[in-house]
């Protein structure tokens, strides 16, 4: 059982930081808007962050073990292909996840 105090602290820390990130710039919005460097980051960072987060999610995959590496790579390709083809976010997410869950619970048990 995970300690409830630790969980509560986690919620407060993560919630507080998220709120600060959202609220503080709203107070300082005018000076921020004038900076060309900030505007450049605002345009370019979102796509970059998402790519980094994809790699972050894959950080525990080992190149020498078949499972869960192979199922995850197959699911990844399903999600990418569907998103490029159909552009339906929910379909891409749930089809990829369904493939991953199915492969891991049948052909490739960890």
């Amino acid at each position: 059982m995970i300690d409830p105090g630790y969980l509560a602290a986690t919620v407060l820390v993560a919630g507080g930081i998220t709120f600060a990130l959202r609220a503080v710039p709203l107070l300082a919005v005018v000076p921020l808007r004038r900076s060309a460097a900030v505007r450049f980051l605002a345009d370019e960072l979102p796509a970059g962050i998402m790519i980094v987060l994809v790699l972050y999610c894959l950080r525990d995959l080992s190149l020498t073990e078949l499972s869960p590496t192979l199922p995850t790579l197959i699911a990844l390709n399903v999600t990418i292909a569907l998103q490029v083809w159909k552009r339906n976010a929910l379909l891409s997410i749930f089809a990829g996840t369904a493939v991953n869950v199915t492969l891991l619970s049948t052909a490739f048990p960890v």
Binding site: M50, L53, V54, C57, L58, T72, A75, L76, T79, I80, Q83, A89, S92, I93, F94, G96, T97, N100, V101
Partner: peptide
């Protein structure tokens, strides 16, 4: 994998 897929999308 839901999270990975979310970030991929």
């Amino acid at each position: 994998f839901t999270l990975t897929a979310l970030f991929v999308v």
